Simulated scan of single mutants.
Amino acid sequence: MDEYRVPRRLRLSRAIAAAQAPVLLPQGRRLRRETPRLPDAPLPWEGRVEGGGDRDGRDDPGGASRTLHLLVIGDSTAAGVGVDHADLGLGGRLAEALAARTGRPVHWRAAGRNGATARDLVRHFLKPALEGPTDLVFLTVGANDALALRSARAFRRDIRRILERTFAAHPEAALLMSSLPAFFRFQLLPEPLRRSLYRHSQALEREARLLVGAAPRAHMSPPPPPYTEGFFASDDFHPSAIGYKDWADFAVEDAWSVGFGRLLDDH
């Protein structure tokens, strides 16, 4: 099946998963045992892309455009799992897409941890990450909350705290949040684990969309298009260098299509 409909009865996603536990738990254990564990991208998780997306600045003739400061915070995708250089991960690819879109130099940095949930970000990473200059936050979280079957209420609470603390620290900043992964397209996931995980991720995503949609300087990406050939790294779970580029291009294109880019004009 190429597509699933958005699951009904999302409020029951945890209960349905609990009822399926005798099947889901062995599938999950086998998946963890058989799936290669890829490392984070090597440090530093930081870099700079010159205006226009050209690293030597030839496409930025003004040369004096104010640098846009990008913070990527989240889970394994913020940590660049799936690539062997951080510039090829989500932070570097987003910086390239933003520099090409705005013509401005972009300094990017990333914070987070492989396996992090939204609660982990709030407790351990958000405060120190926000201490640096920040014009745009890209939040990538939720996959591990879904895998851990965290409640939608707890996830909503943590997303609210991330939003509140981000804008308290940087009132003029903007925030983009990624949609959760389209787990129903992850071929390594067996059924019924694939469908159950997708159902619960949609329950979490719905809560996040309500919060992000109500924030005047925030936007959440729509569900991703079908993943292209080469999107996944060797573990068939995390993005490859191609996948991170596709993701970054999609997120920035969508954000600008709804006028989000205007929020950065004064930075």
Rank of each mutant, 00 (worst) to 15 (best):
P192H: 01
G112F: 09
F138R: 03
G92E: 09
F184Q: 10
G103C: 08
L163H: 13
R194L: 05
L90S: 08
E164A: 15
F183S: 04
R185S: 11
R160S: 15
A152V: 10
G91F: 08
N114C: 10
R119Q: 14
T134S: 09
S178G: 15
T166A: 01
L90R: 03
D120T: 14
L189Y: 04
V141E: 05
L189R: 06
D158I: 07
A169D: 02
L147R: 03
A174P: 05
L121W: 01
L139A: 12
A100I: 08
R123I: 12
D120N: 13
V122E: 05
S179E: 13
S178I: 06
A174M: 11
A97F: 03
A154G: 12
F155E: 00
L98W: 12
Q187A: 15
P181W: 09
E164L: 12
L136W: 10
R123C: 13
W108G: 09
N114T: 15
I159Q: 12
E164W: 08
P128I: 04
V141R: 00
R119V: 07
R194M: 02
P190E: 07
L121K: 08
A116K: 04
A182I: 07
S196W: 00
L136H: 06
T102A: 09
I159D: 01
E131F: 05
R104F: 09
A174I: 09
A169I: 07
D120R: 07
I162N: 09
R109W: 13
A111W: 13
F138A: 14
A173R: 04
F155A: 05
S179Q: 06
F155G: 00
R160W: 14
A168E: 15
E96D: 14
F167Y: 12
